[in-house]
């Protein structure tokens, strides 16, 4: 039973769900910690995915694809920063707008530049190479899982760990936490919180761009309209549930990924596809409910139950 967890479907769900969601959620968490409520992750990812395919196709190189994906994500982040940080627009409304723009722009450019609608698949799209680690590869069960994954899998894990250390020990990490927690306190110490938030947004753009690249040019090498399919929202839930802390975020995203791999498997039992596709969303909703309820109970315990 346990062994079956490590079958190929798990590896597939890692690349299809876990890594994109982890990268995007890390970006969202960095924004959250710096005090930017960014729920435009969905829009960031889809632009990243499209730009990755575009770059990889035109230049015949996966690295250019990765670079374009990051540039696309940063472009969205700059829009967010311009309208939220500089023009003081409400972050939720800005997010809604950017999600629409992300969906619209990727679909529009798919037809306008690549001349197809729906799906773009071409041999010219170079994919990110997978990395094989000799020693780990030969381990039972986990070997297949920890080796032979896409470059971005390893990058995302390292990024999470680095982020953890960064918040605890690095000067900018402290400043970014302060920007999110008591921004006027940071201002009074002579550091501009907006600058920290801009930095956070830019990093988020890079990470979401990479999340998109993982979707489109890591295993499959194609772009589909609306291919982010709600992953950005699952990432938002992961950010909310983990409170933006990197390590819990890591665990949570792997949990969601695990549920997705189960859903891939139960399709084999003849369950209708709609019921299995829904599982990751239900899992994230459930996690959100559990954590929200815990917070509510804690509130009741410390502040008393409010009758309303």
């Amino acid at each position: 039973m346990i062994a079956s967890l490590f079958d190929p479907s798990f590896a597939e769900s890692i690349s299809r769900m876990t890594v994109p969601i982890l990268l995007a959620a890390l970006g969202g968490a960095i924004c959250q910690r710096a005090g930017v409520f960014n729920i435009a992750l969905e829009g960031f990812i889809i632009i990243g995915a499209f730009m990755a395919v575009l770059g990889s196709y035109f230049f015949g190189s996966a690295s250019v694809g990765l670079f374009c994906a990051m540039a696309g994500g940063v472009f969205m982040a700059l829009l967010f920063a311009e309208f939220h940080l500089r023009r003081a627009g409400d972050p939720i409304i800005v997010s809604i707008a950017l999600n629409l723009i992300g969906f619209g722009l990727s679909t529009y450019l798919l037809r306008a530049i690549l001349g197809v609608s729906g799906v773009f698949q071409h041999d010219g799209i170079k994919k990110i190479s997978n990395i094989h680690i000799p020693l780990i590869e030969s381990l039972p069960y986990v070997g297949k899982l920890l080796s032979g994954q896409s470059l971005l899998f390893y990058f995302s894990i390292i990024a999470v760990l680095f982020c953890h250390a960064f918040y605890a020990k690095h000067r900018l990490g402290l400043w970014m936490r302060a920007a999110g927690e008591n921004a006027s306190g940071l201002t009074s110490l002579g550091v501009s919180p907006k600058r920290m938030q801009f930095f956070a947004l830019t990093v988020c753009g890079v990470l979401c761009g990479l999340a998109g690249a993982q979707l489109s040019i890591s295993n499959v090498g194609l772009f589909v309209e609306n291919m982010s399919a709600g992953r950005g929202w699952i990432a938002v839930v992961a950010v909310l549930v983990s409170g933006g802390r990197p390590l819990p975020l890591l665990g949570l995203v792997f949990l969601f990924g695990g549920v997705d791999s189960m859903s891939l498997r139960v399709q084999g039992f003849g369950w209708p596809q709609q019921f299995t596709e829904i599982l990751p969303y239900l899992a994230s909703l459930l996690a959100l409910i559990i954590v929200s309820y815990k917070r509510l109970r804690k509130d009741w315990a410390t502040k008393g139950i409010k009758i309303t």
Binding site: K169, H170, R171, L172, L174, W175, R177, A178, E181, N182, S184, G185, L186, S188, L189, G190, V191
Partner: peptide, 29 residues
């Protein structure tokens, strides 16, 4: 200030040195 400008989830030490941290390498405190 009249309203405190402290960071609730940080330690006393972190608050005292905030924005004036002595640094090691690469900006680590």
């Amino acid at each position: 200030h009249q309203h405190f400008m402290l960071q609730d989830s940080m330690t006393v030490l972190e608050n005292i040195i905030l924005c004036n941290e002595p640094l090691n390498y690469f900006g680590f405190v």
